[in-house]
Design a binder for these strands. Sequence first.
DNA 1: TTCCGTTTATAAGTAAAATTTATAATACTA
DNA 2: TAGTATTATAAATTTTACTTATAAACGGAA
Lengths: 287, 287
Amino acid sequence: MATYSQLRAFDAVAQTLSFSRAAERINITQPGVTLQVRELERAHDVILFHRRSSGVELTDDGRALFDLTREMLDVEERIQDQFHKRATLETGLLRIGADGPHIALGLIAKFQSLYLGVQVQITMGNWKSTWQAIKDQRIDAAVIANPPEDEQIDQIELALQGMVALLPPGHKLAKRDSIRLQDLGATPIIMREQGSNTRRILERHLKDGGLELNIVMELDTREAMREAVANGLGTGFLFDREIGGDERCAMVPIVELRACNRDTLVCLSRFSRRASVAALMKLATSI
Amino acid sequence: MATYSQLRAFDAVAQTLSFSRAAERINITQPGVTLQVRELERAHDVILFHRRSSGVELTDDGRALFDLTREMLDVEERIQDQFHKRATLETGLLRIGADGPHIALGLIAKFQSLYLGVQVQITMGNWKSTWQAIKDQRIDAAVIANPPEDEQIDQIELALQGMVALLPPGHKLAKRDSIRLQDLGATPIIMREQGSNTRRILERHLKDGGLELNIVMELDTREAMREAVANGLGTGFLFDREIGGDERCAMVPIVELRACNRDTLVCLSRFSRRASVAALMKLATSI
DNA sequence: TTCCGTTTATAAGTAAAATTTATAATACTA
DNA sequence: TAGTATTATAAATTTTACTTATAAACGGAA
């Protein structure tokens, strides 16, 4: 069998037409080259070079082989090149998930502006689907609220947010500076879907406080909820940085949920050494 | 650096989507594959496979690499294939020289009919140029008369020929069964060129016998000489198997040159193991 | 659950290979 | 005809690839 070392040595000699220069080129010593080429010739009963007094010269068999080794080693060079480009973030792909666009997009925008060559794929989802995607390795990193401690997962906190009530126009609490959950009393409530972070936090607090809300509707996007509230269908919940410019509703902080939400960048520890993920994590610490 | 073994192991796993089947495919054990792939991933901080409970799956980085390893290992396969085809004489090139067509072409015709895939390049020349071509490795083998002993050169005798005088129409010796060189006396002689085998043999015998011929012309091809003789310009010399059907001249054996010419197949010893050369030599022994 | 079969991971030892050092042979060159 | 440059050869060494043995993880069946 023709080994890789043999082919590489042969190719170098064919390129340089010299055993000693070939040795330099592939960073081994001249006897190493001689040995590899000789073994290649011996094993296949082929003469690859004429050793003339004037120097070495390819035989016809040699020329035919050289065509192929060039092709093969060209591809190999492209492989090494690709590894290098990925390591230096000149190219690559980064799959990011998020359970909400507000915090995530700032970070992603920054990343993209720094690493133009890296393609970024964003998968938006709710808390549960995003967490599952991380665990399933379908995404490389995610911006997610309140991730549980997990030794397989690295975390960097990005922001601390409080929950606000999104009150329909003219609601009696709309002018207040802040409220407590219990103030909502029998107010009709529009709740986010099962698996959402908003709902997870609310349910925990309601249970802890022994409270119950009058849930009249369940919606699975922030946008739908905002429309519902604007149309006076009930009161919804948001985080304080999720505030768009909707003038139709009032937003009032909920006292006991002032800092309930830790928006965090996470990735599987085993992914954290990848150049793209490492760069993203580094970026996050500097925000 | 990504080594060949690593790339080959990676490629096998990518193809089979299984470390153990990959091991079978490339004839090493499963831990060997795991090790190579792991080292490849570690060295470049890259994840090439998702290890899911359901099996392994290529990552995006893995897919990008797989495209390239396929390409590279495809070329390598073609290389191995080419070696095999050359070894089995399904393809190849054989450069044969000859100092005369008569004996050589019979052998070459036989070779070609047996090994259709091997391209045969024939270089006709005189004795000297053919011998030089062998020594210079410009041809792989040659059919040549009376090669000197040379330990770098393998020989197989093909035929023993005698020299005949080619007499012009009506020459006084034309009816004889045989002649001796001295019988030619002052007859005008057409001699072959310096470097030709015919001349080499004649000159040696003339010198040994202290004879001299009346050389009136020197020609460098057999065809030209035959025409000259047919036109009555003088007497020429040929070997007995070189006789075409020329009825215009008479051919009379020269007694002391009855078995002066050993037509021999030669090659450089270091070439004799090449499949094509070995096949030719083998063929020659069976003639 | 527990056991079993299958697959991948890990660790340590081994064999094979690639490569080096040292030196010799060869052939130009001044 | 010593001097320089190149390739060849031999032996020793290092490195790499690979093996054996075993553990761990997981899914499916009893």
